[in-house]
Amino acid sequence: MTTAPLKPSRGLRRSATRGGGYVNLLYLPALVLFAVFMIYPLISGIGLAFTNWNGYSEARSFVGFDNFARLFSDPVFATAVRNTFIFGIGCTIIQQVFGLGLAIALDKPLRGRSTVRAIVYLPVLVSPIIMGTMYYLLLQYNDGAFNDVVVAFGGERMAWLADSSMAIAIIVAVNSLQFMGISMIIYLAGLQSIPEMYYDAASLDGATTWQQFRYVTVPLLQPAFATSIVLNLIGGLKLFDVIKILTNGGPGYSTQSVSTLISTTYFDSQSAGYASAMGVALFAIIIVITIIMNKVLGSRKVEA
């Protein structure tokens, strides 16, 4: 049987058109603010990347693509790019694993699950600066709680942030633990949108719990995966606050991300033009990764 598509009546269409115009007016102020505080700085920032401005002086000269050429021969920038990928990918993986695991566990009708959900989500509400400071105090060599525990078990005090690999691992862990609540919420919403009848049907067909998860839950969670992964990836690639507080990019330059290096280069090294070129490069990196991730994750989308 075929059915002709329903056409809206003329009156309904007129109403929709008028409604659309009204809606346009409503978002106009937001659009203006967005243009003033986001688009203008963006364009201005790109313009700066072609100058040798020091960040405060009135003097500046056009230097063409010199700043971009310098990026390719700068070992510090290469280190920052490598770290940025570690932060982005590392945080994303940990947040997906913990976020999804917690979402599945807390989707079940357990006593006190609302309280546990709130506890997992609460760190998201804390400023990363404050969270970083709390961990910094815990990780201090003298008077730090971690070292107190180590000493209590007969060990020797450690300089936790003195080794670059350890410091990078700590930064990834701190950021992931703080923001896994966001992934949990996204996956919880996704799980609750999957109709129960699919699981009933799968049970009748003899599917095990693992098979139900693999062939029902995972495919129908694709939109949640896409949202959570892209958000976490962008957050990880832009990581700034926790690094500034815990290591300030050190020892040496070994834990710099591109974001922290931009800040250091702009304000401390007084090379605003070069810092802007780094910003453009980071922008390009995130754009490319976001588009690829959207393509990959979007192609697997399954309608429930």
Binding site: P41, G45, L48, A49, G55, I291, N294
Partner: peptide
């Protein structure tokens, strides 16, 4: 959607690189 995504990412990454 693509334009919105590009604009969002761009502004989030570069908003700090300008002078007024």
């Amino acid at each position: 959607k693509a334009i919105s995504a590009v604009a969002l990412v761009a502004t989030l990454t570069l908003a700090g690189c300008s002078s007024g």
